[in-house]
Design a protein around this nucleic acid. Structure first.
Lengths: 116, 116
DNA sequence: TTTATATATGAATAGTTGTTCATATATTCA
DNA sequence: TGAATATATGAACAACTATTCATATATAAA
């Protein structure tokens, strides 16, 4: 039941300077939530499909070799994060990226990966 | 034990066009892994601390109000993802961002959040 | 209205992950 | 050498998440 030993602060001046520059707790939470959505291979694949054009659920499933159900569940997550939008045409639902940010964020990560 | 019903492909032409443009499985996996690292509030806070200047473990812990142990564990994750680097000075270990990409990716996400 | 098909969704499960606690290691100083 | 301090790390646990299976809903066509 030992508490985690606290080290003593080394640079109170730096802490004092950095503290007010930190984004709000809520903002950091939202950003982490957004990245969480990107942080899954299935969702990443879905996003990549949509770089080219809108696509319906069953074509996505076929393309990334996943079940319709899995794709549908993940599309819901992407929809909630406002990363994709959709339109219905009869029975078929077409999904597409909701804005260009998604691709920019993706490419930035790709660059980082490739430099490592 | 019913298999997930497969829908029939709607647009074989689109699939044929998109398929070769998809990044390699391995690349997508790596990118998702990278985003996973960003997808945690504690790690996000640590990263934000380091935008301003290098910082030692106990100052980070104090600044984001977390235990030394939690910070240390998360710094290891960030280190493994090559998002931070460190230098040792006696007992004290100073961490800093390993490149500017981190800040760019962060800002892109911030923009996305703020437009929603 | 019945049948077939596209998509969505609830529940269960297995796997993953973050924190905590306890302790190890490394370094400095007396 | 011994005490104090900074950091790292292993194990355990709780919380979360992605997939699967089963089924519901919605639309179209016969």
């Amino acid at each position: 039941m030992e508490e985690d030993l606290k080290c003593t602060v080394k640079h109170p001046d730096i802490i004092k300077k950095v503290k007010p520059q930190m984004p709000k707790e809520e903002t950091l939470f939202d950003i982490a939530e957004l990245f969480k959505v990107f942080g899954d291979t299935t969702r990443m694949k879905i996003i990549c499909c949509l770089f080219e054009s809108e696509m319906c659920v069953c074509d996505i499933a076929e393309l990334i070799n996943a079940t319709q159900s899995a794709v549908s569940h993940q599309l819901r997550v992407l929809k909630q994060a406002k990363l994709v939008k959709y339109r219905k045409e009869g029975k078929v639902v077409y999904y597409s990226l909701s804005d260009r940010h998604v691709e920019i964020i993706f490419n930035m990560a790709l660059e980082h990966i490739q430099e490592m």
